[in-house]
């Protein structure tokens, strides 16, 4: 009997501990919203390049044609001026190394294509959002699907250094 009481007490304590796990962290007056715990989808990107069979699924010329006709997110400027300086097929892990520890959301060994784009390109942020000039930017494509996965800035434009964010 006493063993049963001890066992029930132990179960109750454990159950109570679990139930109050979130209560212990509850800030006064705040409401709780649980975060999703399911496995998220892998980034699919947006449709960009056609993939050809062979060692090189798409070429530097294909990427040039793409960036001269499709705008990278949050950028403005004359697309016809953009040039692709290089296109390398590397792993997602190498991308993180090149982009200062950026998280790609991809498996480390996933094969991607990293394109360096010479501008100038102009990017802007939240309001009032004046454009900032960058000499170089990048675009990252899925080597298997040709989809655009990421894009962003590399080198700041020389014309707009020195605290003045406005392109001349």
């Amino acid at each position: 009997m006493s063993r049963q009481i001890v066992l029930i007490s132990l179960v109750a304590l454990l159950a109570g501990g679990t139930a109050c796990d979130s209560c212990r962290h509850a800030p006064v007056g705040a409401v709780q919203l649980k975060l999703p715990t399911e496995t998220p989808q892998r980034p699919q990107g947006m449709k960009a390049l056609d993939v050809k069979p062979g060692a090189e699924p798409f070429s530097q010329a294909d990427v040039t044609q793409y960036v001269q006709t499709h705008r990278l997110a949050k950028s403005v400027g004359d697309l016809s001026q953009l040039q692709v300086e290089s296109l390398q097929f590397i792993t997602a892990r190498e991308v993180s190394g090149r982009l200062q520890n950026v998280s790609t959301g991809l498996p480390d060994d996933q094969r991607v294509a990293f394109a360096v784009i010479k501008g100038p390109l102009y990017f802007s942020g939240p309001a009032p959002g004046k454009p900032v000039a960058f000499e170089r930017a990048y675009a990252l494509f899925d080597a298997q699907t040709g989809n655009l996965l990421m894009s962003g800035t590399l080198e700041r434009g020389k014309a707009s250094t020195g605290g003045d964010n406005q392109p001349k």
């Binding site: 980034p43 800035t153 700041r156």
Partner: peptide, 23 residues
């Protein structure tokens, strides 16, 4: 086409801004 995205502009210079296209 309409696409889910997230992006950030981190402390530091150079690779400051990164946009991620999800699907």
């Amino acid at each position: 086409n309409p696409t889910y995205f997230w992006a950030d502009a981190r402390p530091g210079t150079g690779n400051t801004f990164n946009a991620h296209y999800l699907g």
